[in-house]
Design a protein around this nucleic acid. Structure first.
Lengths: 243, 243
DNA sequence: ATTTTTTCTGCGGGATCCCGCAGGGATCCG
DNA sequence: CGGATCCCTGCGGGATCCCGCAGAAAAAAT
């Protein structure tokens, strides 16, 4: 059994390496890659079925790497080892995990033991392990108690990218009015109130821009998610030259 | 001589600790704090004049901690040791460094030797050390070759927060039209083109929202900067109930 | 001091956004 | 089948945004 590490921080990389050797004595080889691209390549060449990776790396972020790895070999087991439990990350991961796949998500702030336990659970016992904190996010985002529908999240991303109502309508195959309906739902859920024709309330906020701001502040969005969305958008724009 | 470490990642903390002891044999004590709040308190209690800190910590971010530390004792020497060279961070730091203060900014990706050299330069030789990469950002941001004026950056932050033209005008003591002028400058510099009344060009982008998006993608803004700006905004809103 | 450059300001109009009102279609009950 | 609930859609209007035109004020250059 070989384990592939994909992590750009050398310190964390060597720490992981040690932890893996300690937790998995049956492991007979640990490989390291320092960014998503190299990681994908190694995973492909070596057909490694056990991966531990960081999200947010400079070259190619973890989610994209995981997606291509899983696309090529869905039975690969991946442990995500990340600094943050941003909803954007959690949602990004759970969006790409294949049905029935074994994976894990533990925070870097977790203890030594938790990490090692997770390693054994995933790679030996074939059991998913998701950090308590992360699971909290997951539930909040899937169940919609104070969470967001897929549709709402989608439109949030679209306005964060700077798209027009009309452009969103085209892209999502909706009428302009429907897009606006969804936007209003979003505004309500984000607690962004109307700056309408009245001086009793604020009138200080541009709802659209404000929504994006609070989404960022609440970590519904982050740089990584934006980058992915931007790439998707670019691809879509290429397919749809312009009306 | 005592050195204070403010860093939330235990791995990096202990690495720093070792590096400091190795690089500064004349140092007779290394203290550690795992977030900005604790760091400020320790700095105050111990009157420590030598600090190494991370930016982006969960409890209280590095820039705010540095600001209060420098406010209380401007001669304190601070080495910022950060993962990123985002323009938002660089600008944030250079905005708060007192005149004549000795400080440094090195990336975590730098080599062992570079870190140790920086430690000696700052704490012993009283010489500022800024990583090459970071200095690049600094010049790009201060000199305005493809860089942004203070005014432009300011208005960028304001729209990122979701403020209305009118609100920005009030806050910055300008007419609405002037705000719009600055916005147009900003759009040009960000390479955001007009979706004007024509179908020859895009018409797909809401300039205001798009500007924020590309600012994030280019790391002119980041979560940290937004949080600081939001706090400032809240304070201002409190002072100006509503017209 | 005069010219040049930059920035601020008002006016106006077209495009976009925000959203209440209302009808149509889909699904899920009883 | 009638009713309830949901989402999609068009219409319309007030508010906001984007920006060209152009004069006034301020700053910089000569």
């Amino acid at each position: 059994m070989k384990v592939l590490i994909i992590e750009d921080d050398p310190l964390h990389r060597s720490y992981l390496n040690e932890a893996i050797r300690a937790a998995l004595p049956e492991c007979d080889g640990v490989l390291e890659a320092e960014n998503g691209n190299a990681g994908e390549r190694l995973a492909r060449d070596l057909k490694s079925a056990h991966v531990v990776m960081d999200l947010q790396m400079s070259q190619r972020n973890g989610i994209e790497a995981a997606r291509t790895i899983w696309k090529e070999r869905p039975e690969t087991r991946i442990l995500f080892w990340s600094n943050y439990s941003d909803e954007a990350y959690v949602r990004g991961v759970s969006r790409i995990v294949p049905v029935g796949a074994v994976y894990g998500y533990v925070l870097k702030s977790a203890s030594d033991d938790r990490l090692k336990l997770a390693l054994r659970s995933i790679f030996i016992e074939s059991q998913c392990v998701i950090d308590r904190e992360v699971r909290g996010m997951q539930q909040k985002s899937l169940g919609n108690v104070n969470g967001f529908t897929e549709a709402e999240y989608e439109i949030l991303v679209d306005i964060a990218l700077g798209l027009t109502d009309r452009a969103i309508a085209q892209r999502r195959n909706l009428s302009v009015r429907s897009v606006q309906n969804r936007l209003q739902q979003l505004y309500v859920k984000l607690g962004v109130h109307q700056p309408l024709g009245s001086q009793d309330d604020d009138g200080r906020f541009n709802l659209r821009a404000r929504a994006v701001a609070v989404a960022f502040l609440r970590k519904l969005l982050n740089h990584n998610a934006l980058e992915r969305a931007e790439a998707d958008l670019a691809a879509w724009l290429a397919r749809h030259p312009h009306d």
